[in-house]
Every structure is written in structure tokens, then in C-alpha cells.
Amino acid sequence: MTTVLSVRELSVRFRMPGGRHVAAVGDVSFELAAGECLVLVGESGCGKSVLASALLGLLPGNAETSGEARLGDGLELLSADERTLARTVRGRRIGLVPQSPAAHLTPVRTVRAQLAETVRELTGARGAALAEAVEAAAARAAFPAGHLDRYPHQLSGGLAQRAATALALVGDAPLLLADEPTTGLDRELVDRTADELRRHADAGHALLMITHDLAAAERIADRVAVMYAGRVVEIADAAVFFGAAGPRHPYARGLLDALPERAFAPVPGMPPELGALPAGCAFAARCATPKEACEAVPALVDGVACHHPHRPLAEEASRA
């Protein structure tokens, strides 16, 4: 399989007034292949949206990045200049499926006009070819052709989401980045949006979805990466993660246990401030079984960053 995005030790820090620093993303590494869907889960403020902004070059001016994020064709995103990002990356190599489609669409123009503008900009199509390309783009996102002449406020939440997805797909970008695409939608619509995004992954796009919604993640993901306090603490196959074996990091296990269909019990405590991370493992203060080793930051080894990861029973037995 061809690698579409390769992130190596990506870190993002924000310089704050008074010489302080906020470490929003720390040493994140992962690979993403064509046709694959990786879902990044974590609670609000864990740094996952900052990671997305870093990939698109949309960080505010006080951000400092290190590490690298390389696209399949070799372009390094962190060092690319704004001109390259604007002309050849956003929309063309990375399609962005936004968080609130209603806000993403221009309220005073019809869906057709907005699609046409994007198609013309990205493909140079004109006249009859343009009209055809617009309808094709709408069809790809399952946006009904009969609704093309409507304004965004005349669309239901689901159709607005499809319109925004259609815009993201126009450039036929190999990588799709979906930032909380299901927040605030009702369950049925979450499922439908997730299924549609999955379809685009199956059609060969690499899909990186960022969400706090574990049910949506389970529905769509090939692999799951759990972020906590700016770091990826576990990255695992979705089938294993959501299956009988379950996750191995205590935070990820706690997060799943908090679901109403499971124990419905919260992880005690709250995540640390990104501006005041503890010296050791950031989760130790909330962990049920902290050990001495937890005074050091655990490295991500074999898909989990924990000094005492949970072991499935079978493995436990084979060791004995």
C-alpha cells in the first residue's frame, strides 16, 4: 500500500506572553496509507485540532513546530511556505471536511455556485464541462442534484455536511482530513456521515478523522490513535481496540468504559493543563495503578505509551 502521509516526531509549542510555552502536540508519529482510515480520538483541548492545523499550515503566528509531516509525493508540510500550501496543498493534496458545514458554506451563494467556483479554481473547467463537473462533484458526495440551487440555510444538517464534503472532494486530494465532522449532529446523521466518509476511504483516499465521538470512530476506523495531553498514548487496530481484547493504555480503557453502553463510569480527575504538564507520564495522576516508573515520560513502544500497559488474558496466560 502506498503511504499518503507520514508524520515523524511532530511537536507544536505555542509561545505565550511572559516567555511561557504551551506544549500542544508532543512527538506524534504515525503513517497513513491510501484507502485507510485513521481516527484520532481524545477529549477537547488534548491537542488534536492543533495537529490538524499544523498539517494544513494554519497555525497562529506564535506556534513553533518541529519534526516532519511528509506527503506521499515527498512534500514536507511543516517547512512548506504559505504560497505552496495555498496553491498546491489545501484542496488539492489535502481535502478538508469541516467541523460545522453550515459555517463553512457562504450563506449568500447557492451550493451550485460554490461548487462551480471551487471546480473552476482547481480544475480550470469552463462552460458545459464546468456544469457537468459540478454535478459529478455533487454526485460523488451523494448530494442530490435537485438541491444544488438551494442556499445553505435551506439545507438540512445532513445535506449541508454533504455539500461541504463535496467541496472537499473536488480536488480529488489523496488525503482527506475531517476535523470533528460529526459534532452536534444526531446519531442517525453521525452514522450516515461516517459511512459516507468511509466510502471515500474505500474509494482510495487516505482519511484522517479527528473526533471525540467514540461511536463514530468505531464505525469508520481501520486504526485508532488516542491522544492525551498532546501525545499519542496508544495507536491500535480498530478491531482490537473496540473488540474483546480492548485497548492497552489505561486512559484508553477508561475512555471506553465511560461509554453509556459500557460501565458509564468516568475516568477520575481531569487532564493536566498543556501549559503545565507534569515531568513524567501525564496520565499518572489519574491512573489507578501508577508505578515508580511513571515518573518518566513513557515512549510509544509497540503502539502504546505506558509503563504498565494492560495485557490481554491470552497473552498473560502464555507468559505464565
Binding site: 481524545g42 477537547s44 459534532t183 452536534g184 467514540l214 477508561g254 465511560a258 458509564f264
Partner: peptide, 13 residues
């Protein structure tokens, strides 16, 4: 609706 699973469980609690 805007919260992660753990905060949801905590607030319902």
C-alpha cells in the same frame, strides 16, 4: 453533545 465520553459520564453522574 459537545463532550467526550469521560466528561459525559462524569456530568451525568
Amino acid at each position: 453533545a459537545m463532550l467526550d465520553a469521560s466528561t459525559t459520564a462524569a456530568l451525568v453522574g
